[in-house]
C-alpha cells in the first residue's frame, strides 16, 4: 500500500479541467472567447477565478457588471462549497472539461451567498474549520492555536501551499491513541435530489464495543436507502474526491485522509450512470 501521506498530497493536488463561457444574454462589445482553467478540487470558486473575471470583463460593458456568479446547467454554483464537491454533486459522469456559465447580472440572492471579498471566503473557511474541530476536539485544538496558525491554514489554502497548510493542519488531525479516533467525525452528506443542502449528525469513529466504524456503517445510519444496494444495477454512487471508496473503509481513516482543508469529510451521493 502506498504511504498514507501520499494520499494527502493526491487529494490536495486534485484538479478539474473547466471551461468557462459567458452567459449568452450578457451584453458584450465583441464575442467572448471561452476561458479554460484547471480548478483545484479543494479550493473555492471565488478564490481561483480572478482570471476568469478579468477575461470576461474585457468584453462586458462596464455598466452591466454586478457581482460575478457561476452556474452549471441551470444550477447556481455555491461558492462556499469546495469545488470538488460541486463537481462531484452536479457533474459526476459528464464529459470534461466541466462547462461552467459565467454571469455578471441578476445575482440569485435566494440561492447564493454574496461574496464581495476574499475576506469573506476566509471567514467562511475558518468558521467551517472551527465547526469541524468542535466535532473532533470540542474546539479545543483550534482555539488553542495562535492567530498566526489560523492565518497559516488560510494562506496555505489560498496560495496552494501543501506543506504550509499541513504543518498546522496535522495538529487538527491528532487524537489520543487510546480513543482510537476523534470524538465525532465532521462530515456532510450531499444528495442531488434533496432540497436540504446536506445532512450531518453526531457519529463516532469507534463503536461502543471498541471496533472501528466504517463508511458503510455511517451510510447505514444516515441514508439507509443508499446502502441497501441489493438492487442490481446499483442506483447510487457514493463519491468522495471523485472516487468511490470501499464501504469497508474505516471512517476515521477517511476523516484523516480524505477530508477537505475545511476539515469536513464531504460525501456526495449521486445517481449511478444508467448506461
Amino acid at each position: 500500500m502506498a504511504d498514507d501521506k501520499d494520499v494527502l498530497r493526491d487529494v490536495w493536488y486534485g484538479r478539474i479541467p473547466a471551461c468557462f463561457t459567458l452567459y449568452p444574454d450578457e451584453v458584450t462589445d465583441r464575442e467572448a472567447e471561452p476561458f479554460y482553467l484547471l480548478l483545484p478540487r479543494v479550493s473555492y470558486l471565488m478564490l481561483v477565478t480572478d482570471k476568469v473575471k478579468k477575461h470576461f470583463l474585457k468584453v462586458v460593458k462596464a455598466e452591466d457588471v454586478e457581482e460575478m456568479w457561476f452556474e452549471y446547467e441551470g444550477t447556481p454554483l455555491k461558492w462556499h462549497c469546495p469545488i470538488g464537491v460541486l463537481f462531484d454533486l452536479h457533474a459526476s459522469n459528464t464529459a470534461l472539461p466541466w462547462s461552467i456559465t459565467v454571469h455578471f447580472k441578476h445575482f440569485p440572492d435566494r440561492d447564493l451567498l454574496r461574496c464581495s471579498s476574499s475576506a469573506l471566503i476566509e471567514a467562511h473557511f475558518m468558521s467551517t474549520i472551527k465547526e469541524a474541530d468542535a466535532f473532533k476536539h470540542k474546539g479545543q485544538v483550534i482555539n488553542d492555536m495562535q492567530k498566526k496558525d489560523h492565518k497559516q491554514l488560510w494562506m496555505g489554502l489560498q496560495n496552494d501551499k501543501f506543506d504550509q497548510f499541513w504543518a498546522i493542519n496535522r495538529k487538527l488531525m491528532e487524537y489520543p491513541t487510546e480513543d482510537g479516533g476523534f470524538r465525532y467525525i465532521p462530515f456532510r452528506i450531499y444528495q442531488t435530489l434533496s432540497d436540504r443542502p446536506s445532512i450531518q449528525k453526531l457519529f463516532r469513529p469507534v463503536s461502543s464495543e471498541g471496533h472501528a466504524l466504517t463508511l458503510g456503517d455511517l451510510l447505514k445510519e444516515l441514508v439507509p436507502d443508499v446502502i441497501s444496494q441489493d438492487d442490481d444495477p446499483k442506483k447510487y454512487q457514493v463519491v468522495i474526491h471523485g472516487i468511490e471508496p470501499l464501504f469497508e473503509t474505516p471512517i476515521q481513516w477517511l476523516s484523516e485522509h480524505l477530508s477537505h482543508p475545511d476539515n469536513f469529510l464531504h460525501i456526495c451521493i449521486v445517481p449511478a450512470p444508467s448506461d
Binding site: H80, R110, D111, L113, R114, S127, K130, D195, R196, P197
Partner: peptide
C-alpha cells in the same frame, strides 16, 4: 465583524440567511 455576523447557508433550507456566530 466576521466572527459575529455573517451570511450563511441555512442548513435546512439551503438559502442565504444571516447568522450570529455561535463561537
Amino acid at each position: 465583524p466576521w466572527d459575529t455576523l455573517t451570511q450563511q447557508e441555512h442548513p435546512f433550507l439551503g438559502q442565504p440567511f444571516f447568522m450570529l456566530h455561535p463561537c
